[in-house]
Design a protein around this nucleic acid. Structure first.
Lengths: 216, 216
DNA sequence: GTTACAAGTCAACGGCCGGTGACTTGTAAC
DNA sequence: GTTACAAGTCACCGGCCGTTGACTTGTAAC
């Protein structure tokens, strides 16, 4: 609103660049050490800036973190699935692919892991908002599968709620705990494949059962 | 080892009673406010004792908490199922009953919720130990079901790993988040029943599939 | 009662962390 | 160059929390 002559030159003292550095550091720290490590001094040091700037630019530490969350909506990732090739149908193999993708992505995204843990650890309106968005997107997908389950004995949303929840818990559990879950070692290739196969089986059971019971 | 004349009299200054008060306060606070609220001053105030006693008796705050965890193995609860009437078999309806029981118990046990969250939040050898015990107990149960799934296309342990994990995540999620999971509101009676029915369905699918594919 | 020791009290230290006031310095307009 | 202001620096406050040392007090043995 004041100095709008950006892009023309590159000053050494650049407020917007500093803000971006801080925001970027939030992401980097979140990914490396989790939300518990989001301390003012830590973030500032990582950004090679003075922590005072956090308060100058974002009002408070919370303001900075909120700004980061608003700018980085991690749950839009899945939309790529539809952007590339818009889905018109949702058959069993596609659902299995999405669930497996969810697992693999989460497994390799410490940032997402930390955010999910965060979401389980305390009430946060911002996180809620983002979850709501995700739900809204998921609903678009489920609409595509409704025709298979309408009037059947299968509640496909409930089954997926179970499977998605299971994936979340298993990934989080495996971060700090080396022990098995019901004898399954989710960190090993073998355990992972056992879980994947069971997920696949459950989804196929759903479609089969639905076909048999649809419209009674 | 020194003053062993307990039980005879009831002194006002009673070390063992004070220790128990502190341990009990740990449990009470854990249940009410979660593991994050386990502060020395907080615990001492709740026990109506001086916080110095924590260090006199348990060496450190961590020592007190560890002592509490060691004395209270929360996961033995499930064993009641077998103590009352030792299981010799594990049919589908029994498995469903156990899983539903798990859900309902966890739903009403803030203490367990906090401990599960704790387990997801940081590495803790004590918690690991307790989880291992639980795994060992679970394995006893699975052995009873092996005859149904040996040589079949169903990995019953993997399916249960998914369902148990799902239950854990859903309960934790519902503590702070009011939004739905895949359109299911786990906090409502309706949502709970939808989840229960799907769990039941999945277990029955397992037994049915196993019967059809056993020994190929 | 006297005594010795454990049980319990109290005040304080030191570290961490969010936040701030007052200062210095780079930059752009003139 | 001078000047004005934003960008950035630095030392510090105040609160919280784990931990401790030095003290007081109840209790049991004699």
């Amino acid at each position: 609103m004041k100095t709008e002559q950006r892009n023309t030159r590159e000053p050494k003292r650049d407020k917007l660049k500093s803000m971006e550095k801080l925001l970027h550091s939030v992401g980097a720290i979140l990914q490396k050490d989790g939300y518990k490590a989001l301390k003012a001094q830590h973030i500032a040091t990582h950004a090679k800036l003075d922590k005072k700037l956090i308060y100058n630019y974002f009002g408070s530490l919370g303001g900075l973190i909120d700004a980061y969350l608003k700018k980085n909506d991690f749950w839009k990732r899945t939309e790529l699935l539809t952007e590339q090739a818009p889905l018109a149908d949702l058959q069993a193999d596609k659902v299995v692919e999405i669930l497996k993708g969810e697992f693999t992505f989460l497994e390799h995204s410490p940032e997402m892991q930390h955010i999910i843990l965060w979401e389980l650890s305390e009430k946060n309106p911002l996180l809620q908002e983002i979850l709501d968005e995700r739900e809204h997107f998921g609903e678009q997908l489920f609409k595509l599968s409704d025709k298979y389950f309408k009037g059947s004995a299968v509640n496909f949303r409930a089954v997926n709620a179970l499977l998605v929840s299971a994936i979340y818990y298993i990934i989080l559990h495996s971060r700090y705990n080396t022990n098995t879950i019901c004898g399954i070692d989710a960190t090993s290739k073998k355990g992972r494949e056992q879980l994947f196969k069971s997920i696949e089986q459950i989804i196929y059971w759903c479609y089969r059962e639905a076909e048999q019971t649809r419209n009674q």
